[in-house]
Design a protein around this nucleic acid. Sequence first.
DNA 1: AAATTAATGCAACAATGTTGCGATTGATAA
DNA 2: TTATCAATCGCAACATTGTTGCATTAATTT
Lengths: 130, 130
Amino acid sequence: MKTTRNTAAKTAVLEVLEKSKTALSHTEIHKQLNDLCDRVTIYRILDRLINEDIIHKISNLDGTVKYAKCHHLHQRVHIHNHAHFSCENCHEITCLENVKPSYIMPHNYKVNEINFTLSGLCPNCLNSNI
Amino acid sequence: MKTTRNTAAKTAVLEVLEKSKTALSHTEIHKQLNDLCDRVTIYRILDRLINEDIIHKISNLDGTVKYAKCHHLHQRVHIHNHAHFSCENCHEITCLENVKPSYIMPHNYKVNEINFTLSGLCPNCLNSNI
DNA sequence: AAATTAATGCAACAATGTTGCGATTGATAA
DNA sequence: TTATCAATCGCAACATTGTTGCATTAATTT
């Protein structure tokens, strides 16, 4: 089994995601890192972090892809099956850690993973009534 | 207000989507149309059909984007807020017209649209136990 | 410190989606 | 039916996003 290494770039990517309250796209991470490393490197780091179950990938309704490190309090395992909120105004994506949908499936389907994204207006944008 | 026209290409795209039991990507539609029209035209037709509320766009967990015309029986309005199932084996996306999640939102969010995608194994692939 | 190999940078490529513009064609009125 | 006019189309060019191969660099182990 391949071992994974803690490189400067990986630490930096993780730190950026950790500091951010919202999910970030590859491009946004790249900009924040300010040419610390190559574009390709970031893609590979994100892949690794996903494999290691440290971050997760969110694909938005509009086709954009974002990454987030969820902030679970006192939880050992990183759970992906929570909801995400995508603001139509500011385009920020936030994890709604406590929103979990309940649903009834037809027979003969095996569900492994769920992706539940809600879009509309986030509290910030709702208040500044656009 | 702009009026919309029924062109040969638009009719063909809609027919392809209507016949398909699963959601299709731009590329899949393009192939099925067999160079009836340009790649760009299909993008524009899909945009129009979405605006006209005839089809809808589904973005998958893996980042792929698909389009579907849902088959609502005896329903006047096209409702997008149902679930989609994405098979990890055959990669087909189907609409689960009757699966609607229930959930509780925190205050101060205004939800306009929801996207609920489940992934795992569809009945076909589950039976042929891979 | 040396060895091992994961990770990186670079270049090149592939896939997907967008834009501008002149040509075409569907819908409407004459 | 024909003329009109804007919606739509095709083409070319471009932008963005993501992938791959390979030589080089650097993190970890001994």
